[in-house]
Design a protein around this nucleic acid. Structure first.
Lengths: 84, 84
DNA sequence: CTAAAATGTCACGCTAACCTTACAATGCAA
DNA sequence: TTGCATTGTAAGGTTAGCGTGACATTTTAG
């Protein structure tokens, strides 16, 4: 998913490795998220956002188009109660 | 992790199953998160928060003590550059 | 140009989130 | 109490995030 990590990170003059250490993860994990290869866990997203003093939504962009596909929920409504 | 899902959900008179359908997941997944057995993926957390018109941090409580343990990052600083 | 730092990637392994199916327990209304 | 809706859980399987180690490529400092 798109995010502002690189931009925010460089604004603070930090390396991926430094950021990784600050949030307790590896530089590879930071890199994968930064380059949009992985989506962060909710805690990692939170910790990263905290470093930049931003809410999660201020660092990660939740765009419908970014979704790795799932059933179209826009068409779903709570009108059923078919068994499990 | 602690959250306000139940409270917000019932305020809207919804069942776990209905909420699950609205965010495109199963009622069991909603239940597991509501009862703090699982932590939501970042997208699921976002979708749930959206249903309640709240930011992620407005629905999920990120308390240090809730963390499922990880190395103490408070003591970590970016002073190293030991190889990987 | 050259060495070091930073970044990009890959493979392998582990774990947790989530799905489906199924059943038990609880809550509530008739 | 009976019946149904809701919630709680468990088991098995799939998938993705993340760690570690290793190596290639790119960027930056001298």
């Amino acid at each position: 998913m798109k995010n502002k990590i690189r931009q925010l990170r460089e604004a603070l003059g930090m390396t991926q490795e430094q950021l990784g250490k600050m949030v307790g993860t590896s530089r590879q994990a930071i890199n994968a998220i930064e380059t949009e290869k992985n989506e962060p866990s909710i805690w990692l997203a939170y910790d990263i956002a905290q470093v930049f003093n931003e809410p999660i939504e201020g660092v990660f962009l939740f765009e419908e188009s970014e979704r790795k596909s799932r059933a179209d929920i826009s068409r779903r409504h709570a009108y059923g109660s078919q068994r499990d």
